[in-house]
Amino acid sequence: MEEKLSLQEWIDLAETENKSFGDFCIEFQAKELEMDKRVLLERMEEMLHVMEQSVVIGLTGITSMGGLVGGNGKKVETYRAESADKSVVGSVMSKAIMIALAVGEANASMGRIVAAPTAGASGTLPAVLFSLSEARGSSMDELGKALIVAGAIGMVIASRASLSGAAGGCQAECGSAAAMAAGAAVELYGGSPEQVGQAVAITLKNMLGLVCDPVAGLVEVPCVKRNAGAAAQAMVAAEMALAGICSVIPVDEVIDAMAAVGNAMSCTLKETAQGGLAVSPTGILLANKLFAKVES
């Protein structure tokens, strides 16, 4: 069995070398892939372009394959335009909510997305990256570097726990996406490697135990709205980390706790559509309707 990765180990290396976590990750990953740093950054920027296109697709107000979601990203867009003075969370987070819903809806309607880390959680990273980069005026290179930070965090989570809802519940999908986005946000705002780790730990702690209970087994309800929730969790944790708040439980231990919680979780709550919202009266009603359609 391969040795588990450690986020703390990478953070310590970056601190020792006096580098930002982004600079450390890009060098480390480029070496690992035997790839030029510039090429790696360009590949990440291609991913960012696909993400931007997913937002555009989502905001056209499409309806999903199962018909359970669609049009909500556009609703937030309209609300932002017409009722900006009534935003509860302010413009930046409201934009993140809009993007998360738009990409989630694009995914549910067979649009082109970047699975980051999965298709079901594909709205979270674009939401955090694009809303913050607009607020900060970040360059494409800075965004690419932040995405590499997100990827490195995801690799550690995959190695110590899981990125799949079937294996670890939604905490492993939306939770991991949020943790990756939180680390990316800290990087984008010039935080230290240590702060990246704190943001990851805080996010995962706040999303620990989240179950994967898709209605009718589709990546629609509650997945799309959970991406908006995950984006918000990422921003909350990044804000705390940048303010110097530390997680009492160290980051690698939090990831291990997530793995343990995932293992202890009943199979009915891991993507099988046999528990949680999937078996609520309305969830069952919708599933029966959809399956009847399939058979007809």
Binding site: E32, L33, M47, N107, I113, V114, A115, G151, A152
Partner: peptide, 19 residues
Amino acid sequence: MNIFDVIGPVMIGPSSSHT
């Protein structure tokens, strides 16, 4: 596993396993 397994693939949704 490498970083492109986490950031990627680019795909048509909605599900990596079912689509």
